[in-house]
Amino acid sequence: MSTADQLHRLVLSVPGVAAVYPADPAWRAPMNRLGAVMAPGTSAPEPELVRLRMDGSTAHVRIRVGASGDVPAPELARRIAAEIRATLGTETEMEAGAIAVQICSIAAVPSVPRKAEPTPSPATAPTATTRPSMQS
C-alpha cells in the first residue's frame, strides 16, 4: 500500500470525516471533454485523493474532505492534520512538511426537526471515497 493510500484510509477513519474528495477540484474535466470527442466510452484515470509531494525526505500533503457534521469542522481539520503528521512521523521515514486540509462540504446535523425529504436518488449518493458507515 502506498503512503497516499495509507493516508487516505487514515483520514477516512477520523471521526467526523464523511468523504474524501479528489485533491484536484478540476480533475477529470479536461479528460471528460477530450474523451467525449476522441474516444467515447474510454475510462478516465482515477482521481488523486491524497496529493503527496516529496521534497527530499519531507512530505507535503493536500487533502479535501467532507465533514459529517458530528464534529465541528475547524476541529476536524486540525485533527486530520495532526493524524497525518503523527502517521508520517511514526509509520514512515518521511518528515511532515506542509499539511493542507480543506473542508469542502459540511453535512447538517439538525437541532430542529427536519422537513420531510425525498428518497435520495442514486445520482446523489457519494461513492468510493465515502466512509462505509456514513453511506445512506
Partner: peptide, 26 residues
C-alpha cells in the same frame, strides 16, 4: 486556525453556503 505552523487549513465558501442552505431548510 492550525495547531502547527505548517498547517494550511481551510473550508470553502461553497461548503458554508451549502450548510446555511441545508440548516435553513430544516
Amino acid at each position: 486556525a492550525g495547531a502547527h505552523p505548517d498547517d494550511d487549513l481551510s473550508e470553502t465558501e461553497g461548503a458554508v453556503v451549502a450548510l446555511i442552505r441545508t440548516i435553513g431548510d430544516t
